[in-house]
């Protein structure tokens, strides 16, 4: 179901980043070390940054911070996005490895504004995207230069917080553990006794599990389960004709009433409204055809930002 794999982000040998242009269908809530820069080149994309969500339109740029739980899904129009997965090391303070930077770069919500126009970032991102299509030694150095320019711009021109951790940052094993937890919940979300079975599966006490989840995702297990359940219902509501009460049952919400309440809380609309509108945010409802894009299209789209 994921149109690209987050979990095994491969930066290749050349760059401390993975850069690609893709069309995103859906990617449920997940989390990784990399910072992820998304630039929508065409269409629109629904981005969920727990607990909020927003719709990115053409030209929007968002930096998803390291270790932030997020999900992506297409809206009723298809999309083409430039995705840059930037290694955490790019943003590391050499002096204190226990610090994690959270940058505010989101042209959609635009709550904490950068000190320069968003174009500063989209231009550099697009340039990187373009360079990526060439494979000469010059490009190799140019991309490195542009990447560091981008990182420098992010440090210089965005507001950021620092999360300070006591000792070592989360280890690789911990990341694996988190992915195993999410995977398990995705497969067993309907179970009543999921807490017990998950604790057994992962080998943690309930308390440890709670702390672990909270510190890495800021979610409790209950919240995680609900978010995954809701994810399923969104899919079923838009892609199947199943009655809402059946969906509520299948996704493990018990009663319809509970389902309506939780759904409304999460998305600000009822399941029925969602089914009719086809999106959680009001959008151009005209269903467009699948956008097939070629390298040529991608280059054309990227050039618009330079």
């Amino acid at each position: 179901m994921n149109s690209y794999i987050f979990e095994t982000i491969d930066h290749g040998i050349k760059f401390p980043a993975k850069i690609f242009v893709t069309s995103i269908e859906q990617s449920s809530y997940h989390w990784h070390y990399d910072y992820e820069l998304i630039l929508v080149l065409k269409g629109s994309l629904s981005l969920k940054l727990w607990p909020d969500s927003c719709v990115m339109k053409e030209g929007d740029i968002v930096l998803v911070n390291s270790k932030v739980v997020h999900g992506l899904s297409e809206t009723n129009e298809n999309n083409i996005c430039l995705i840059m997965q930037l290694k955490q090391e790019l943003f590391e303070d050499r002096k204190d490895k226990n610090q994690n930077y959270q940058f505010y770069l989101n042209s959609v919500t635009d709550i904490v504004k950068p000190m320069v126009p968003y174009e500063t970032f989209t231009r550099t991102a697009a340039e990187i995207g373009l360079q990526y299509y060439e494979n000469s030694l010059t490009n190799y150095f140019r991309i490195q230069a542009l990447l560091y320019t981008l990182v420098a711009d992010i440090f210089q021109y965005t507001q950021y917080d620092i999360r300070q951790y006591a000792d070592k940052n989360t280890t690789v094993e911990e990341a694996d553990t988190l992915l195993r937890i999410i995977e398990y919940v995705e497969q067993n979300y309907y179970e009543d006794s999921i807490t017990d079975s998950l604790c057994r599966y992962i080998g943690m006490s309930e308390k440890t599990l709670y702390r672990f989840l909270k510190s890495h995702t800021n979610l409790t297990l209950k919240e995680l389960v609900i978010s995954i359940k809701l994810e399923k219902t969104l899919h079923m509501l838009s892609k199947t004709d199943k009655p809402i009460s059946v969906i509520a049952q299948e996704c493990g919400f018990g009663t319809d009433k509970t389902f309506y309440r939780i759904f409304k809380n999460a998305f600000g609309m009822t399941p029925t409204e969602y089914r009719i509108s086809g999106t959680i945010v009001e959008e151009n409802k005209q269903v467009q055809g699948y956008i097939d894009y070629s390298k040529r299209d991608a280059i054309r789209l990227l050039k618009k930002y330079i």
């Binding site: 959270q102 904490v112 504004k113 507001q159 950021y160 917080d161 620092i162 999360r163 300070q164 951790y165 510190s215 800021n218």
Partner: peptide, 10 residues
Amino acid sequence: AEVIYYPGTD
């Protein structure tokens, strides 16, 4: 605890 540092510009 979750320790969040922000210099305070904005």
